[in-house]
């Protein structure tokens, strides 16, 4: 099991099996919808994990990129007559470029100062989206055109399940392979000690920036997917609450663990659906579960499990 959690092909194979088997167990399309939400959120969380887990930098405004992706998918077809696919790609480019230019000054800040700067950036983007209603529909949001691929309209819950799962597999594969590249090894050095990494000649600033851009592009693509899946966008997607939710997914699942991000996303998407039966007590339970899991699994769910298994051996 530990080897399974460490071998990237085993991880991908296991993920593929879960994805392939799950739909056969679902009693209704509603479960497909929830699972698709998990895949999309996990995609964004994996990207953020590259920034937080690998490069060790926090972002409390990451939903801004999610929002840019979502609104690109909405605005492209509606105002500019672009196909949805192109809008997704353009959104990812805009997010990447924005991350590149904003990241330069912001990433010089450290720790909590970085947190507040990214938070401020997120608030700004959300504010622009809420205010420029001519383009974005304002606080109530706007509808999004359905995705068509070669004239085939992707609308059914099944189609979205497979599409989001395919994106997740590719996203996880890229993130897992990062470890073997020079960038990935540099991340490792950076994570252990920023000063030491600098001493051995790693361009730390450029490295952090690269992680920031990667995370932004992941979030943007996830945002576009969610927008097209829902057929609707609104500014909440870019808001502070959503940023916090994304960070919680990453930390709860386990910093630096790709599987962890998927588990973290699953927990945070499924929990509100499961807890809704408690009605008034829902938030009380949600907060309690988050506290208890972080206190007892301080490194996150997946690292905790693999540690337990290692100890059992």
């Amino acid at each position: 099991m530990t080897t399974l959690l460490n071998n990237r092909y085993a991880i991908l194979a296991a993920l593929a099996v879960v994805i392939a088997v799950l739909p056969f167990t679902f009693p209704s399309n509603y479960y497909l919808r929830v699972a698709s939400l998990v895949w999309v959120s996990a995609f964004a969380a994996i990207g953020l994990n590259v920034l937080m887990g690998k490069a060790g930098q926090v972002s409390l405004g990451h939903a801004a990129f999610f929002g840019i992706g979502a609104y690109s998918a909405a605005i492209g077809p509606a105002h500019l007559g672009l196909p949805s696919w192109a809008s997704l790609a353009i959104g990812a480019c805009i997010s990447g470029l924005l991350a590149y230019f904003v990241g330069r000054p912001i990433l010089r800040l450290k720790g909590h100062y970085l947190a507040i700067a990214t938070l401020g950036f997120g608030v700004l983007i959300a504010l622009v989206i809420t205010t420029e209603s001519r383009w974005t529909g304002g606080p109530d949001g706007m509808p999004v055109a359905k995705l068509t691929v070669f004239g085939w309209r992707i609308g059914t819950a099944y189609a979205w399940y497979w599409l989001s799962a395919a994106f997740l597999l590719v996203g996880a594969w890229i993130a897992l392979n990062l470890d073997d590249t020079p960038t990935g090894r540099a991340f490792l050095a950076l994570h252990d000690s920023e000063v030491a990494a600098r001493v051995v000649g790693i361009d730390v600033a450029a490295l952090k920036l690269r992680a920031f851009v990667i995370a932004a592009v992941y979030a943007s693509i996830a945002g576009s997917l969610l927008a097209m899946m829902n057929g609707f966008v609104n500014p909440d997607l870019a808001g502070f609450q959503h940023s916090v939710e994304l960070v919680t997914m990453v930390v709860l699942g386990g910093l630096g663990s790709i599987v962890g991000s998927i588990v973290g996303a699953a927990v945070l998407v499924v929990l509100p659906q499961a807890l809704t039966v408690f009605q008034e007590y829902e938030n009380l339970m949600l907060g309690f579960i988050i506290i208890v899991s972080m206190v007892f699994m301080r490194d996150g769910i997946v690292p905790m499990i693999s540690k337990l298994i290692a100890r059992a051996r």
């Binding site: 937080m52 926090v58 720790g111 916090v244 960070v247 919680t248 930390v251 709860l252 910093l255 008034e280 007590y281 829902e282 938030n283 009380l284 339970m285 949600l286 907060g287 309690f288 579960i289 988050i290 506290i291 972080m294 206190v295 301080r298 490194d299 996150g300």
Partner: peptide
């Protein structure tokens, strides 16, 4: 206190959980 030694970001998540918990409690 029980989470002493956890990373800074883990503890932030705990306080965010506490915030959700307290808000949920106040609502009831």
């Amino acid at each position: 206190a029980p989470a002493r030694g956890a990373s800074a970001v883990s503890i932030i998540i705990i306080t965010i959980g506490a915030s959700i918990f307290l808000k949920g409690g106040a609502q009831v």
